[in-house]
Computed example of a mutant assay.
Amino acid sequence: MKALIDVIDIALNIYKWVIIVSAVLSWLIAFNVVNYRNQIVAQIDQTLRALTEPVLAPIRARMPNTGAVDLSPVVLLLGIILIQLVLAYYVRPYVF
């Protein structure tokens, strides 16, 4: 059981980094720091969007419109941190 909790924790940590990289890349594309016409940049962006959009879209649908600022990655990161805290403090002590 401890191994399963450790795998879940590692997967959540990796997904946190995917969300952060996706948000930073979207800012870099929006401010024309990186060129979206570059095939590598476009492929990385499409891959990151495919990994994050299924989770971020329902959050965006429930959040109020904040204009140009997208706060859904922040909400998702806070949710992942909450899940990790619950695993660390309530589940892990009872696993032998």
Score class of each variant (00 low, 15 high):
Val74Gln: 06
Ile59Val: 11
Gln43Glu: 07
Asp70Gly: 06
Val24Asn: 15
Ile44Asn: 09
Val41Glu: 02
Leu77Pro: 00
Phe31Met: 08
Arg37Ala: 14
Gln39Thr: 15
Arg62His: 04
Ala23Cys: 07
Ile80Tyr: 04
Ile44Glu: 04
Asp45Gly: 06
Ile14Ala: 07
Ile40Arg: 09
Ile44Gln: 04
Ser72Ala: 09
Gly67Met: 03
Leu76Arg: 02
Thr47Arg: 15
Met1His: 13
Met63Trp: 05
Val34Tyr: 01
Arg60Thr: 01
Pro54Tyr: 06
Val41Asp: 01
Ile8Phe: 12
Asn13Pro: 03
Gly79Pro: 00
Ala30Lys: 14
Val69Ser: 00
Val7Phe: 10
Tyr94Phe: 13
Glu53Gly: 03
Asn35His: 15
Arg60Phe: 02
Thr52Ile: 15
Ala11His: 10
Leu48Gly: 04
Leu71Arg: 13
Ile8Cys: 08
Pro54Arg: 13
Gln84Ser: 14
Val24Lys: 11
Leu87Trp: 03
Val24Arg: 11
Val86His: 00
Gly67Cys: 00
Glu53Val: 09
Leu48Lys: 04
Ile40Gln: 09
Ile40Ala: 08
Leu71Thr: 14
Thr47Trp: 12
Val75Pro: 00
Asp9Tyr: 14
Val91His: 00
Leu12Cys: 03
Thr66His: 12
Val33Asp: 02
Ile20His: 06
Ala11Asp: 07
Leu76Val: 08
Met63Gln: 09
Leu78Gln: 09
Ile10Phe: 09
Gly79Lys: 01
Ile81Met: 09
Val41Gln: 01
Leu56Lys: 07
Leu25Phe: 05
Asn65Trp: 02
Leu71Lys: 07
Val24Leu: 13
Val74Glu: 03
Pro58His: 15
Asp70Arg: 09
Val24Met: 09
Leu12Pro: 00
Ile20Thr: 12
Ile8Met: 13
Val74Ala: 12
Arg60Ile: 04
Ala3Met: 06
Leu56Arg: 09
Glu53Met: 04
Asn65Asp: 04
Leu78Tyr: 05
Lys2Val: 12
Pro64Gly: 02
Thr66Tyr: 12
Ala42Trp: 05
Leu78Asp: 06
Val95Ser: 11
Val75Thr: 04
Gln43His: 13
Val69Trp: 04
Tyr90Thr: 15
Ile29Thr: 07
Val69His: 00
Leu71Ala: 10
Asn38Leu: 08
Leu51Val: 08
Tyr15Ala: 09
Gln39His: 10
Glu53Asn: 12
Ile10Gly: 05
Ala42Thr: 06
Glu53Gln: 10
Ile40Gly: 07
Ala23Trp: 02
Thr66Lys: 11
Asn35Ile: 07
Arg60Asn: 01
Pro54Lys: 14
Thr47Pro: 03
Val41Leu: 06
Phe31Asp: 08
Asn38Gln: 09
